[in-house]
Design a protein around this nucleic acid. Structure first.
Length: 134
DNA sequence: TTTCTTACA
DNA sequence: TGTAAGTA
């Protein structure tokens, strides 16, 4: 079924390939790994090998990071993102829960902030377009 | 050629 | 984060 373009979930992607596929630098990939955000195995020659599913994982990490979520928290919720069914919730410490609630609240505020500005810009654009037609 | 580690800007 | 150096 998959002869050439489907190496779906096999631990074999070199850092350069992952970088190109996920559109991030190899430098950042190594950095995420240093921070314990992603894992990799090592080939006999010492080269890192990545599971192709990390392409998505990297995007999730970027999103979380861009939302200013601390690496410490990302580390804790990443395993949950892997299998949402896994019951990490049961062992979530009060500290983690508190941190996540705070982050959630902050994200909510950002969403409102962005929404408001987006609408303001949309309205401004509208008025400009209208004026242009005069 | 690609990747690795370490380190500086 | 990018980039340089010296390897494997």
């Amino acid at each position: 079924m998959d002869a050439d373009k489907n190496a779906a979930t096999r631990p074999s992607m070199k850092i350069g390939e992952l970088a190109k596929t996920a559109n991030i630098s190899t430098r950042l990939i190594r950095y995420y790994e240093e921070q314990g955000l992603i894992e990799s195995t090592r080939a006999a020659n010492g080269y890192r090998e990545y599971d192709p599913v990390l392409v998505d994982r990297v995007w999730q990490i970027r999103g979380l990071l861009e939302a200013s979520i601390p690496v410490k928290i990302i580390r804790d919720i990443l395993p949950f993102l892997d299998d949402p069914c896994d019951i990490h919730v049961t062992e979530a410490s009060p500290e983690l829960i508190a941190a996540l609630e705070e982050q959630h609240e902050q994200m909510d505020q950002r969403v409102h902030f962005l929404t408001r500005n987006r609408d303001a810009i949309a309205a401004y654009l509208e008025s400009i377009r209208g004026a242009r037609h005069l």
